[in-house]
């Protein structure tokens, strides 16, 4: 009797979340899976093709290249994001003078729209009318000037930098919360034992933040593997496909060529790749929980 009445109370509370999850996550997921077994004409006529789209994916160098670029963007972005984010979060933890101003400066880009940031950086990277190259030339460092978005070796890192520039504030906030949670007694004990700030950071803080870092890394992997807007606005996947990621290739396949079935197969494959990567990252970085 009690359980029944308890269930009656729980269901209405769960229902909104279940409906939203079903409508915006489960249904699209299942539908994408179904679509990936169909061929679409431009006008939307469909025919069942079985696993043909998946077989095609295996032999498609554009998809392989896009997948490679997606991994690269994730890796380069992680290298650009985490060291400075941890450093800034640590610095903000040190009770600096004007701390709230620095917090504002670091977080400000996060409130700008992606399109604005992408267009702004597209201009900044411009080789002749931008800001970086002319500045380098006027400082006598012309040899370092590059056509950042026009060179296949620098285009992807340049996009990754832009993604990081905009998003770093969020990661700093999350990491700052981690630093704030560190038990003062443990840090004090370290100091009493003669540990310097560097040793304290490396040997006490970082190990204690390991769980948080693992979660943030998984979040970054999931987020960066779905990058679309920056690539689409800044390079459209060029030069010659060197920045093409799975989402931009998927978009072109679906909306330029109206091949929704093939695009869905790309999406489903990416989903499984992301799931696998998430599990691997979780497994590799998982350690015994440190209680504090």
């Amino acid at each position: 009797m009690f359980r029944r009445s308890q269930r009656r109370i729980v269901i209405p509370f769960l229902l909104p979340a279940l409906i939203l999850t079903g409508l915006f996550f489960l249904y699209p997921l299942v539908r994408a899976g179904i679509i990936s077994f169909e061929h679409f004409s431009r006008t939307g006529r469909t025919s069942f093709t079985g696993g043909e789209q998946y077989r095609k994916l295996v032999d498609d160098p554009s998809y392989t290249r896009a997948l490679k670029n997606t991994f690269l963007l994730t890796f380069i972005g992680a290298c650009m994001l985490f060291p400075p984010a941890v450093a800034v979060a640590w610095a903000l933890h040190q009770k600096l003078y004007g701390e709230s101003f620095f917090r504002f400066v670091v977080f400000a880009p996060a409130v700008l729209s992606t399109a604005v940031v992408a267009l702004m950086w597209k201009f900044i990277y411009h080789p002749t009318i931008g800001l970086i190259d002319p500045a380098l030339r006027s400082a006598g460092l012309g040899a370092l000037a590059r056509t950042w978005l026009g060179d296949p070796t620098t285009a992807l890192p340049a996009i990754a930098f832009t993604v990081v520039w905009q998003g770093i504030g969020i990661w700093v906030v999350l990491l700052s919360a981690g630093f704030e949670r560190l038990p003062v007694e443990v840090l004090e004990a370290g100091r009493v034992d003669g540990a310097g700030e560097w040793a304290l950071f490396r040997r006490i803080m970082l190990p204690m933040l390991r769980d948080l870092m693992r979660i943030l890394l998984v979040l970054w992997v999931v987020q960066s593997m779905q990058s679309f807007a920056f690539v689409q606005i800044m390079t459209r996947g060029g030069p010659f496909g060197s920045t093409d990621v799975v989402s931009t290739l998927m978009y072109r396949t679906a909306f330029d060529q109206a091949d929704f079935g093939y695009a869905a197969a790309m999406g489903v494959t990416l989903l499984f790749v992301m799931l696998a990567l998430t599990v691997i990252v979780n497994k590799v970085l998982k350690r015994d929980v440190i209680q504090y």
């Binding site: 990277y125 080789p127 009318i129 026009g150």
Partner: peptide, 11 residues
Amino acid sequence: LKGFQGTDFTA
């Protein structure tokens, strides 16, 4: 054009 590699069509 100098730097055409990084120049979009409007520019």
